[in-house]
Nucleic acid binder design. Structure first.
Lengths: 213, 213
DNA sequence: GATAGTTCAGTGACAAAGTCACACTCGATC
DNA sequence: GATCGAGTGTGACTTTGTCACTGAACTATC
């Protein structure tokens, strides 16, 4: 049974109608939900799991723009749905999960009939704009070593993070060599221990150790 | 009489109603429409003139995120309107003009009553997301000299551009010194002529010369 | 379990961009 | 025409990005 907060708030009658036409799909980790240039069939709601959205620029470099998790709405799709233009970014499943796809017609009907649905869409959109604005600031003005440490810190609870330097470079929008250099420096400072495809957090950041406790 | 394409597409009855409650305001160049942290009173529609939207990061640096011109909708405001959070950015009038402010209640009513209005809002939002995604890519991966040249090129029709190096640094999200250095190099190459607060385009870019003709 | 192939990581050398400190200069004002 | 402030120029240094390469670690196959 699909469960998503923006569907839960719908009045009973509308919810039933919508449910009939929504298809729920299960996605394994690594699956590409959509890629750049593709056209959009409906609005995806993330029910479970996590999805990263990244774009590749004309320069050929890639950067992760944001992530979606349980209860998120793929706001990016709304623009594509409305303008008919293809996606500019690509979405890849990180943790396997499931998504419900709301077809265009149902989306239009929900937007027409439910003020609460509209509010949910608009809020989600506001959050996405905020995320992107913060990312611009981050990329433009923050030092790479700080950004790397913050990224690791945010995942400190894992203990060991399974990621290659190349993937980490895409997360931060930089070059693999830069990540390698900075990680090596962190290792010298006994903050991390490195091995092929893995980063083990050792001394990093008291606060996160406390948070994990 | 306010004139904006998203109002024009409204059915006569709705349009009349809306018009009564919309206030049109005239803004002189330099006026701040809203600044970071402020709360949003309604949805601004740009009728005339141009407005730049810029944010200042925790680092203290600023960057111009995008511009709005005639017929644009301040999509950023929708998020603020819906979530009740304050603005993250600041909007400054560049060329004097006027804007219509749609109060929250009227906005809700139009969203409820007009599919065409909804479409217009969603399209505008899609464009804004696209802009920001392109900006992220631009900032993360493009060389500053190229970005500077493109910025100048886009304004080539002006002939002489009145801007300080500091302002230009905010446009590109970099430091004043970097802009000064790059401009000096362009001057050496006879692409521009520099004077205090002014940049005169001389040899720059055949294409733009043709476009201006 | 040796071999070959592939992916991942490390590194030196150099170029581009950001930072810091300071000098200079233009132009408005008194 | 002296003064002052905003705007600009520049050198020295750090950080980040790029290029070219090496070697190490995993995988598949014989």
């Amino acid at each position: 049974m699909p469960h998503h907060s923006i569907l839960d708030i719908l009045p009973e009658q509308l919810r039933k109608e919508a449910m009939e036409k929504i298809q729920v799909m299960r996605f394994p980790a690594g699956q590409v939900l959509f890629s750049a240039g593709e056209h959009c069939q409906g609005l995806p709601l993330v029910l479970q799991g996590s999805v990263k959205v990244q774009m590749t620029g004309v320069s050929g470099h890639s950067i992760v723009l944001y992530r979606m998790g349980k209860d998120d709405i793929c706001t990016l799709s709304i623009g594509c749905l409305m303008t008919g233009r293809g996606y500019r970014a690509e979405a890849v499943v990180e943790e396997e999960g499931e998504a419900a796809i709301i077809p265009r017609g149902v989306f239009d009907r929900l937007m027409d009939q439910s003020p609460a649905f509209r509010l949910g869409i608009m809020e989600s959109y506001g959050r996405r704009l905020d995320d992107l604005m913060l990312l611009v600031e981050e990329v433009a003005f923050h030092r790479m070593d700080e950004r790397l440490e913050e990224w690791l810190q945010a995942r400190a609870s894992r203990g060991v993070i399974a990621i290659t330097h190349q993937e980490l470079a895409v997360e931060l929008g930089t070059a693999r060599e830069v990540v390698s250099r900075l990680l090596k420096e962190l290792e010298r400072q006994k903050m991390v221990r490195l091995s092929r495809g893995k980063i083990e957090l050792t001394g990093l950041l008291d606060s996160s150790v406390l948070a994990g406790a």
